Amino acid sequence: MIAITVKWDVKPEYSADFMELTREFTEACRAEPGCLWFEWARSVETPDQYILVEAYRDAAAGKEHVESEHFRTAMATQGQYAARRPQVVSVSTEQQGWAPLGEIIMPDQ
Rank of each mutant, 00 (worst) to 15 (best):
A82Q: 08
C29R: 07
L36D: 08
P12L: 10
D108H: 14
V6T: 11
H65D: 07
M75F: 09
W40K: 02
W98C: 02
M106H: 05
W98E: 03
A55H: 03
K11E: 12
E64K: 03
L21K: 15
P86Y: 02
S68Q: 06
Q87F: 10
F38V: 04
Q96T: 14
S15A: 15
T77A: 07
P12N: 09
A41L: 11
M19N: 04
A61S: 11
V88G: 01
T22G: 01
Q95N: 09
V10W: 00
T73Y: 05
G79D: 09
R84K: 14
A60K: 13
T26L: 09
V88W: 08
V6Q: 10
I2C: 07
A55Q: 07
D48S: 09
E27H: 08
T26P: 03
T93E: 08
C35Q: 12
P47H: 06
A16R: 15
A83K: 12
W98Q: 04
P86A: 10
G62I: 00
I51S: 00
S92C: 04
E32V: 02
H70M: 02
Q96K: 13
R84D: 15
D17M: 10
H65Q: 10
L101Q: 11
T26Y: 10
C35Y: 05
Q78K: 06
M1D: 05
T77H: 11
A76Q: 10
S15D: 04
F18S: 08
K11N: 07
P12C: 00
D9K: 14
